[in-house]
Design a protein around this nucleic acid. Sequence first.
DNA 1: ATCCGGGCCGATCCG
DNA 2: CGGCCCGGAT
Length: 716
Amino acid sequence: MDSQTVISSLNDQQKEAVSTNSIYTLVLAGAGSGKTRVLVHRVAWLIAIDKVPLQNIFVVTFTNKAATEMRKRIEDILNYPTKSFWIGTFHGLAHKFLRIHWEEAGLDKNFQIIDSLDQIRMIKKMLKTLNKSESDFSPKDIQLFINKNKDAGLRPNKLLDGRIEEDSEIIELYRYYDDLCKSSSVVDFSELILRVIETLRNNKDLLERYQNKFNHLLIDEFQDTNTIQYNLLKLLAGNHNSIFAVGDDDQSIYKWRGAKVENMQSFEESFDSTKIIRLEKNYRSTKNILSAANSIISRNSSRLGKNLWTDSHKGDLLSLYRASDERDEADFVISKINDYFNQGNLRSEVAILYRSNAQSRVFEEYLLKYKIPYKVYGGLRFFERAEIKDALAYLRLISNRNEDNSFERIVNIPVRGIGMKTIEHIRNVSNKNNISLWESSKKIIEGNMLSKRANNALYSFVNLIDKIDSLTKGSALSEIVREVIQSSGLIEHYGRDGQLNGEAKVENLGELVSASEGIITSEDISLSPLDDFLSYAVLESGSSQSSSEEDSIQLMTLHSAKGLEFPVIFLCGLEEGLFPHQRSINNQSELEEERRLCYVGITRAKKTIYLTYALRRRIYGIDHFGSPSRFIGEIPLDLIEELNSLELSLSSSTHSGNEYENNKPMQLGQRVIHNQFGEGVILAYEGNGPQARIQVNFYDEGCKWLVLEYAKLKFI
DNA sequence: ATCCGGGCCGATCCG
DNA sequence: CGGCCCGGAT
């Protein structure tokens, strides 16, 4: 393959990036500027032109989905499968490393990964054993504390130097938690990466080996790397390996979980003669969509600066729909979706985006009602569901008897007569002898330490696990899974009358079997298929719908939409307090992150975008009256078409005023003058007639709600 | 040991 | 509103 084949389809800046000789490259890639394309072609260039062997390349993506897709596209260009290719998320790659080097990392061979729900469970249990009340330290706060410190590379010991006295208790909890993880051989998300760094730092040979191996480090979504991830990258880079970082500071939306945009600014300082390449041509959206997005993001202060442009046509205006409440909003969205589908388009071309997961419920309800297939991303995902976690716990226990978390989760599910008292006993013996719950149970059974009934119950459980294990030795993975959900009694348990959503849960358990069939085992980790599957289940928790090939509407949060594109976008719930979120409204930098999130949302759209907001919305079962998001007002008026513009008739009542003024239709964005507050713009309104309330943003006085009848506004 | 119901509290976003 | 925890009844 010659160089032309690799870069012929690219524009000049993209070519420059793909074919660069620079050791350190920072690509500032605007939304829709062909970022993924550049990365994919860069890898192809390295392999085909620079003759770099695949195993010397290390590629970090933000999601598993992105990794899978990128790998596929690289294979398409190279025209051969990419075996033993280190491409994945930081977590996925760290996991791979730890599987290979579990010994050097001080882990058990078959360590398991826990997700954040498991982590909470563990913390709660820990508090119980330590006889601490959850009111002193909420489990969530402890979790936050632990993860925050791990993400900053700080172990309890490090924290104890120079600690503040009042922190010592929570640091002790952190230490205890780490011990607990060790004894049950589990690893949490943050631990994965921290452990890799520590292993490399404490093992010069290993570090050298990897520094010699990965000559080319490529990283996507660089703006969303946190401290420890960046440190890992620097460690691997050493003094001579090349780094090719791609990112967009305007799309940095993960500051809340420790991501540092500053990494982008400091990249140039950290690495000598960094070459900076800007990708500013947008290939995705129409001119109108891009103008709207640019107008919004231009309000932010701290930006590296990019000038995104397009030579596409103007396209449609952005549509704005004012819903009376969230049901009306959903109804509107559905009707537009039906129109679009009936014009012969695919459902999968449409995405409904929202700020928070809870908003998906109403949409789901309506989509179900109208029998429109859909797929939800995020929220409670497939592998996080209770029934699935139960089944996984059985599988984990089969793989590793000492995994206390799983033991406790399912020792009495389905109920088999092992109650609190028995479990308490098992825990005591386990604590006293410093052995796992499993070992402790066996000891108890042998010593006949319980009542006959309890002893029998416990025996039958221990026996069950052993039996499933020996029965399925050597069986295919899916056979093991099938056996587990059957003989554990889970199917029967969930299928029983009275179980909430019983059929759905049984169905999900069946899905788990199918999921285990589709797994392709990772090539270069010597992991049993079962352990491979268990890791996969945690790292890739999947969408919340069971997988199906059916053409369906895509529902997701703005965060999970990053990196994706759709012909038609519905950006919903554009209300102050919801988006921007209440918790960010009073903080300039957090508000700017919300604005970037909005920018991300709008730039997902290729052709059409609908913006919707609701005048009334139920949250926690209480009605809230919101006002339209400030972000709507940040889009130039001439780019927006209001689908149901305000046409208030004021004539119907006692209102005293001149006839013309009373009947004049009002529009959002209409400029008005108030005696006291001066000039402003109408942002929203509620109700009808003279009693209607309208919200005006006064240039000097800010936003105010006024009752139309008394406000005596002059329209100008 | 298990079931049921009332009280309480809380959800931004992710791997 | 809904999930989770706890306590009392069986």
